[in-house]
Amino acid sequence: MKTAATLTVNGAAYPVELDPHLSLLDAVRDLIGLTGSKEGCDDSECGACMMLLDGKPVNSCSYLALQADGRDVTTVEGLAEGDELTPLQRALLEHGGVQCGFCTPGMLISATALLREHPDPSEEDVRIALSGNLCRCTGYDGIVRAVRSAARSSA
């Protein structure tokens, strides 16, 4: 039985009808049409689906969409202010932190959450925080440099 709910994604409210078993990832991609968040493993190993839920990171493939009813969801599409990329997004481009790009939305969300909690993380802090996000290109060095650079530029 589908249940009516309101998903608030990147500040916009979407009235939706949700199956109890539908994941937040599938709801945002298939019902709302925001396809920035990716499905990698579909069981919380890879972090490609990571979104912010009330400001906290969540693996959206393994979170029921109905539990997000009335909460604030932020996807990678919601990070930039209009055409103005965040310092983290710019740093990722500058440091070659994007290769195939599949992990990038989750990496950006994960690193955004990290920098809110730890404005100036050490390299070790960044590597540990991002180790829930897998990069299939193994391009971690550029990603880690970008996160540290963004932290310093915002400090």
Binding site: P20, H21, S62, L64, Q67
Partner: peptide
Amino acid sequence: PIAGGTDLVVGARQGKASLPEAIVAID
């Protein structure tokens, strides 16, 4: 019951046990 869902939903994704037909969110 479901709270954070980090075991229940992940377990279902991995095929350990399908999600319950009747769910009550306690979060």
